[in-house]
Amino acid sequence: MKLTDWLLRGKPNVFVTEERLREALRHNPPDAPVLESLRRSCLVSTGTVDGHEVITLTPRSGPMGTEVIYLHGGVYVRPLVSAHWRIVEDLVEDLIRRTGATFVVPLYGLAPRYTADDAYRFLDTGYERVVQRAGDRPVFLAGDSCGAGLSVGLAIHCRNEGLRPPTGLILFSPWLDVTMTNPGIPALTKLDPMLAPAGFVAAGQDWAGGRSATDPLVGPLHDTLEKLPPITIHQRPRHPPARRREVRRQGTSRRHPRRPARLAHRHSRLRRGGPDPRSPPGPPRCGGPHQAERARLIITGRAEPRA
């Protein structure tokens, strides 16, 4: 993560003003290729859904049936960059290697050319294909920043449309409110070298398209957040707490304020029905029969029969 932080800090802040953002979007680079280090641990395949590329990372040791759909960040306007792949490598590779999960990375269309409605049509098709392939095995949604917000939005969409819900959500610093009206944001803006509210608001408006910025499919924080799958949130302490307060209020979330260096241990808490909200806060204890059983649950989606 230190390397990722350094890479991100070396980028110019294009979100300082709407004008600077518009100029930067004229020169958006293509999506970054999969890192060679990930190719060594995974078989990489690509396909298309509704004209958009979908990248699948399958463990070379063989898939175990669990599926994770990972949506990248970028404020809905920036492509997947090498820093995102390094986040995948740093935060997720353990989960692939140790649990046998297959990762699916859909490259959804970006604003202003595409809107949230376009993304949900694309993800509807992609999600259904993953669910069919998984059968009765777990299917998780994961994402960072706006991709985490989109993961929550997709879970809301599944709930509203009566679709099979994801087994759980794994969110990294989720952006859940594109209005950027949290009163704690201005004080933190000077601490952030790569992001700023003005560009975020413009990007959020583009992403909303014909919808309101407070539509739950655009800003999930404005939903009731009831009857959603269990949620695990990884977030740094300086991020405004109101971005996660309503999610936590539902009693199904767990916050890990420090970077989750070993997700295989953290996410062994994820049962078929998600993390146990009754578990005490703090990092999970590793080892022991209960931990082993929880690890089997995320890998297989089923508990071992008790003697």
Rank of each mutant, 00 (worst) to 15 (best):
T4C: 11
D5P: 07
W6D: 15
L8C: 09
F15H: 07
T17I: 14
N28E: 15
P30Q: 07
A32G: 03
S41N: 04
I55H: 06
I55A: 05
L57W: 02
L57H: 03
P63V: 01
I69H: 05
H72D: 06
H72N: 00
G73F: 08
G74L: 08
G74E: 02
R78Y: 13
R78C: 04
L80F: 03
S82R: 15
P112H: 09
P112V: 02
R113L: 07
Y114M: 05
A116Y: 00
D117T: 08
D118Y: 01
L123F: 05
G126P: 08
V130L: 07
L141S: 12
S145E: 11
G149S: 08
A155M: 07
I156F: 06
I156Q: 05
R164M: 04
P166C: 10
L169T: 01
F172P: 04
P186C: 09
T189N: 05
P193R: 03
L195Q: 09
Q205S: 12
G209C: 08
A213I: 15
P216S: 13
L217F: 08
L217N: 02
G219L: 06
L225W: 02
L225K: 11
I233Q: 03
R245S: 10
G251C: 07
R258Q: 10
R259A: 05
L263I: 10
L270K: 04
L270I: 13
D276Y: 00
P283K: 01
A295K: 10
E304N: 06
